[in-house]
Design a protein around this nucleic acid. Structure first.
Lengths: 223, 223
DNA sequence: CTAGAAAATATTATATACAAAAAACGGTGC
DNA sequence: GCACCGTTTTTTGTATATAATATTTTCTAG
């Protein structure tokens, strides 16, 4: 076992991909805008090779289009697109919650209880950053408990369509999150598979609808 | 408009990715095996640049793992993994079929009828290649009619986990396909949204179970 | 003056060489 | 056996060259 356990430096391509993904989901990079490897490389102070790798990864994730011999452009992401991505997420997350409910160990319940208590505390004191962090931890715990790495992978993929720090920007999100998580946790605790699926599915889809509406609004104001 | 309309040659990276994907899904490349950019480049007679891009793309698709500073390895794809990927496919394809059923035009029905007739003909004369082609066309038509590009994109992504020419290798597949498609087409024709969803979902999941069993068997025989 | 051809330019995709840093390997001594 | 140390690969990132293709500009004919 290593003593230092120092964090491995993320690879440049991954950092660049993450950076550009934020720009796209936040709307800073407009749909259809060309994205040139060299420009990206220059802006981020890296070489073209990792920049190009980042663009390829973003293409595989559906954020960029590539016309052969013409280059990359920012893909159009409409409200309906986001709604559909969240629909997928809701279906898969529902399945994961159902599986977590079937094999819910006492340890899992304890961990979720702890996170949920912290989340409620963060809600009462209005700490949005902590809230978002704890929300993420709650969902991750369930997704891991389901023991289905490929489904978790799909979730990770489609959930990238939500911009960073998005949830905190929804009015009333803290209250509904606490409420939804309470019901979901109860379903998991009692091993109620189908309730867990439904609670999770509705919870995710609801968030997706909010984001989609927000994006529809943004696109409308730009036209 | 161009006169020649010659097909654009796919980019080297895409060709390499496709080639390696086949190797992985068919089991030719064993799980855990290292995949070096230079080796791939040499074998395919291309340069390291597109080879590297191919590996990155396959990583984004979940076929390769990348350990930082250690390189790419073939991801382990178990029967359960495939079952889960097909579960996602079944859910999304079900949604697409449901949408296709709601806005089923006369043209769509006509096209599907034609494809289905050809498919039955191919079945009676035992033409597996045509059968697989027509099966694909049938599903694609439904997916396009649903008018949900992002859902179609998810389908494309997860359906890559089925090896090429897999369906034809299942005993009894031609008959069940004709049977399932008949019911599905009937549901779409009558605009029965939920029947269409269920038929499609069951149809896809059934195929996934077959493939998963096949993979379980392959893995068991290798250990 | 305008349409279209031809030339000039830009950009993409690919190839190749190379350097720094990390990891794997292999032998040596204990 | 096993820890240590130097060598050799391998990964990662950089820089640059070249062929093919797109785009833009220029030029010319009508």
């Amino acid at each position: 076992m290593s003593i230092t356990n120092r964090p491995i430096r993320p690879q440049l391509g991954d950092e660049a991909a993450s950076f550009l993904r934020d720009q796209i989901t936040s709307g800073t990079l407009a749909a259809g805008a060309p994205v040139r490897p060299e420009t990206v490389a220059d802006e981020l102070g890296i070489s073209t090779t990792p920049a190009r790798e980042a663009l390829q990864a973003l293409r595989a994730e559906g954020f960029l289009d590539l016309a052969p011999r013409k280059g990359f452009t920012v893909a159009k992401v409409t409200g309906d697109d986001v709604r559909d991505m969240f629909l997928v997420q809701s279906m898969v997350a529902g399945e994961l919650a159902a599986r977590a409910a079937t094999n819910a160990s006492a340890e899992l319940i304890a961990v979720l209880d702890k996170i949920h208590a912290d989340l409620m505390a963060a809600e009462t004191r209005g700490d949005l950053a902590a809230l978002e962090e704890l929300n993420h931890a709650f969902h991750r715990e369930i997704n891991l408990a389901a023991n289905a790495p490929r489904l978790a992978w799909v979730i990770k993929l489609v959930s990238r369509y939500a911009p960073r720090r998005f949830y905190a920007s929804i009015p009333g999100w803290p209250e509904t999150t606490v409420h939804d998580h309470t019901d979901l946790l109860q379903a998991i605790r009692s091993g109620d598979t189908e309730s867990a699926r439904r609670e999770m599915s509705d919870h995710v889809r609801h968030a997706g609808d909010q984001l989609a509406a927000h994006i529809d609004e943004r696109i409308a104001s730009q036209s």
